[in-house]
């Protein structure tokens, strides 16, 4: 009898979870457990193994004058309705987002959408303790969040802001702006470039086409004409070589790397003086940071990819 009542109440609560929110009694949360194995054992052995005592002394009589029915007063009800679902904490989060989404649907949105980066699907799963979150649900939630994010900042409710903060990634790539270089009080502009393992810094001033690399003349530093041309390519294709003086510092790597690091550095430094040249420099490939590097050697290999010859034995 007692067992029946308990099982019944649990089933009832589960069915309640799908209905919209109502006041939920503040009882201590009890972990659900399964009785199926014990019931199977009982059947096998032919005697009763499990006796469950009710947590309170229950008087099995209906009190008519109480405002709440007896069952509702005595049964154990979890904090959240989604407690009995497969993914309780995600469902809670989702419902919370949906609630605000519906609530603030009337607010005006900005014309240009925000470029916020949200927590990824994997991160959401990790946060919920690896609940089986359907991707579709996740996408739906993000869609709603994006919509909320586009609310006109003037009328943005605080609760939405808080919600967005919870779901935003800590690192927002679009917030990171490249360092803006300006022409300094001496008329110099600075550009920095990299290639292979070399780094280069180039200072450009208006001048007559004189170049110093690490304190040496261009020919002394770069013996090969090819490298000299590489270094000054940006100025060459814009016909600016006789108009600027360059003071450059390069380090690391070999000659080619240093020369091509200088290409990038000088291109960037030139853009500080003349930003309108960007299109031309881009077209000519001067502003491309070549990401290629020497591939690392791996254990078991002779080089990065080369394997030792196969030997019978």
């Amino acid at each position: 009898m007692v067992r029946y009542a308990l099982v019944h109440s649990i089933r009832n609560a589960a069915s309640l979870a799908t209905t919209p929110s109502r006041s939920i009694s503040r009882l201590p949360i009890i972990r659900p457990f399964s009785t199926s194995r014990i019931l199977a054992l009982e059947q096998q052995e032919g005697k009763q193994l499990l006796t469950i005592q009710p947590p309170l002394d229950i008087e099995y009589e209906d009190v008519e004058d109480h405002p709440k029915p007896l069952l509702e007063r005595v049964r154990i009800v979890p904090d959240s309705q989604s407690y009995f679902s497969a993914r309780p904490s995600f469902t809670d989060t989702f419902l919370g987002v949906e609630h605000l989404y519906l609530k603030w649907k009337v607010l005006p949105r900005t014309a240009t959408p925000q470029d916020t980066h949200w927590t990824s699907y994997d991160e959401v799963r990790a946060m919920t303790g690896n609940e089986p979150v359907p991707e579709k649900r996740y996408r739906e939630m993000i869609r709603m969040l994006k919509d909320l994010d586009n609310i006109e900042p003037v009328v943005m409710p605080t609760e939405v802001l808080r919600l967005i903060d919870e779901h935003k990634r800590a690192f927002q790539p679009n917030q990171v702006k490249p360092k803006v270089f300006l022409v300094d009080e001496w008329g110099r502009s600075l550009g920095v470039g990299k290639r292979k393992t070399s780094t280069a810094k180039a200072y450009l001033v208006m001048g007559e086409g004189e170049v110093l690399v690490n304190g040496k003349s261009l020919t002394e530093y770069f013996g090969r004409l090819h490298d000299r041309e590489s270094a000054l390519w940006a100025l060459k294709i814009t016909e600016r070589i006789p108009k600027y003086n360059i003071f450059a510092l390069v380090e690391g790597g070999g000659v080619t790397g240093q020369a091509e690091a200088l290409t990038l550095a000088i291109s960037r430094a030139l853009l500080v003086h003349e930003p309108q040249l960007e299109h031309r420099l881009l077209e000519a490939g001067c502003l491309f940071r070549d990401p290629r590097k020497v591939e690392r050697k791996k254990p078991g290999h002779l080089k990065a990819r080369k394997m030792p010859a196969w030997v019978r034995r």
Binding site: S230, W233, I237, T238, E239, T263, E274, Q276, L277, R280, E283, A284, G285, C286, F288
Partner: peptide, 19 residues
């Protein structure tokens, strides 16, 4: 768009101007 005062307009980018 070129604003530099003394700069004559640049000739079109030649194919061998690409780095």
């Amino acid at each position: 768009d070129l604003v530099e005062a003394d700069a004559s307009p640049l000739p079109a980018l030649k194919p061998d101007d690409i780095f």
